[in-house]
C-alpha cells in the first residue's frame, strides 16, 4: 500500500477540519431533494475542490492519489452522501475535463471559478432513449460558422438543477462511430439551453438530478474540449477519474461503518462478555475489514497505474465492480 507523505497527511488533516461543517443540517437534506447550498459554502472555503488542479488557475496542484486520499477521508467523516457525490461530480465532470482538454483561454475563463466552487459544474451524457450508451446518443452538434448548434435532450444530469457549467457530449458526425462525439463546455445562461425540474436520486436526496434540453443552442467552437470527434476520449479520461474519486469516497463510508461496528461490538455485552468476542460477530467484522482493504487496494493500485500512463480499462472495471459489490453487500448487512 502507498506510504503517504507528511505533506499528504497535513493536507488531509487541514481539509478534514471542515468536514463537520459539510455535515451540518444533514437530516434536512435527507428529507427534501435540494442541493445543500449552505454546506457548499463550507466546501468552497475548505479548498477541497482545488485539490487536483494547477496552481496557475487557483488549484492546489495535487496528484490524483493525494486527491483520492483526501476524498477517502471525506467519505469517512461526512455523512451527507449527496453532497459528497456533488463534490466529485463537480471536480471530475468539469474541472478535470477542462484542465486536461481545454484551451488556455477556456481555462483562464472558467477554471478559477471551478476551483473556487463559485461555478458549479456537471456533465450531460445520458439520454432518455440510449441510457449511458455514449455511442447511441442522439444529441447533435452541427457546425455553423464559428459556432456549433446543439439540439437534443439529456437525462439524469447530476448537479444539474444548480449547475453553472455543463460539459455536453453531442454527435458532430453521426456516421463516425466512436469518433463522432464531441465535448462542449456550455454555460447555463446560453440561449437554447433549458433545465427540467429537479428529480430525486435514489439514496441521494441532496444530489438532485434533472433533464436538460438543447434547442438550437449556439456554442462557440472555442468551447470545444479536445478536438472535434475526440469526445469519447474526453469521456474515457473523465470516467476514469470519476470512478476512482467517487468510489474512494465510498470506501471512506465503509470505513466509518466498520469503525461503528467495532465500537458497538466492544460496548454491547451479552452472557457476561462483549459481543465482539463471539465468533459469529467477529467473523462479520473481519469480512468487512477484508472487503474495505480489497476495495482500497484495487482503487489505489489502478490510480497509480493510470498516473504512470498505463492502460487501465480492465483494472478500472475490476476496481469498480469490487468496490461496488462490497459496498452493496455491506450496506445490506451481509458479510462480504
Amino acid at each position: 500500500m502507498i506510504a503517504w507523505s507528511k505533506d499528504d497527511e497535513r493536507l488531509k488533516e487541514g481539509i478534514s477540519l471542515w468536514f463537520g461543517k459539510f455535515d451540518e443540517d444533514r437530516p434536512r437534506y435527507g428529507r427534501e431533494p435540494a442541493f445543500p447550498r449552505e454546506p457548499w459554502l463550507a466546501v468552497m472555503e475548505s479548498g477541497i475542490l482545488r485539490l487536483p488542479f494547477d496552481e496557475k488557475w487557483g488549484g492546489l496542484g495535487q496528484s490524483l492519489l493525494t486527491t483520492m486520499y483526501v476524498l477517502e477521508e471525506l467519505g469517512r467523516c461526512c455523512r451527507n452522501t449527496g453532497l459528497n457525490f456533488g463534490i466529485t461530480t463537480h471536480m471530475v465532470s468539469t474541472g478535470v475535463a477542462l484542465q486536461r482538454f481545454g484551451s488556455t483561454a477556456l481555462k483562464d475563463a472558467h477554471l478559477p471559478q471551478v476551483c473556487a466552487g463559485t461555478a458549479v459544474g456537471t456533465h450531460a451524457v445520458t439520454e432518455p432513449d440510449s441510457g449511458s450508451d455514449a455511442l447511441g446518443m442522439r444529441t447533435t452538434a452541427t457546425a455553423d460558422g464559428d459556432c456549433y448548434r446543439l439540439s437534443g435532450a439529456k437525462a439524469f444530469v447530476g448537479n444539474g438543477p444548480v449547475a453553472d457549467l455543463v460539459v455536453v457530449y453531442a454527435r458532430t458526425e453521426p456516421a463516425a462511430g466512436p469518433l463522432g462525439v464531441t465535448a462542449f463546455l456550455v454555460a447555463r445562461d446560453t440561449p437554447g439551453l433549458t433545465f427540467g425540474d429537479p428529480v430525486e436520486g435514489t439514496g441521494l436526496k441532496s444530489a438532485p438530478l434533472c433533464s436538460l434540453f438543447l434547442d438550437d443552442c449556439r456554442v462557440p467552437r472555442t468551447h470545444i474540449l479536445g478536438r472535434v470527434g475526440a469526445g469519447l476520449l474526453v469521456l474515457d479520461h473523465v470516467r476514469t477519474w470519476e470512478i476512482l474519486c467517487c468510489f474512494i469516497v465510498g470506501t471512506g463510508e465503509i470505513r466509518r461503518r466498520l469503525d461503528r461496528c467495532v465500537a458497538y461490538a466492544g460496548e454491547r455485552s451479552a452472557f457476561g462478555r462483549s459481543v465482539g468476542g463471539f465468533q459469529a460477530v467477529a467473523k462479520r467484522i473481519v469480512d468487512m475489514k477484508i472487503g474495505l482493504e480489497m476495495s482500497r487496494k484495487w482503487l489505489y493500485d489502478t490510480a497509480e497505474k493510470f498516473t504512470a500512463g498505463r492502460k487501465v480499462t480492465a483494472d478500472l472495471a475490476t476496481a469498480k465492480l469490487v468496490a461496488d459489490r462490497i459496498a452493496a453487500t455491506l450496506g445490506l448487512g451481509r458479510a462480504a
Binding site: 482538454f101 469518433l179 479536445g226 478536438r227 475526440a230 476520449l233 474526453v234 500512463g309
Partner: peptide
C-alpha cells in the same frame, strides 16, 4: 468504441508511440 481503444493500444505497442488523446480524431 472498444475497437478504437484496442487499435490505439496496438499502434502504440507496434510503433513505440505515445498517442495523445487529442490526436484521436476522425
Amino acid at each position: 468504441s472498444l475497437a478504437l481503444l484496442t487499435l490505439v493500444s496496438w499502434l502504440e505497442n507496434e510503433y513505440a508511440l505515445d498517442i495523445d488523446a487529442a490526436d484521436v480524431v476522425p
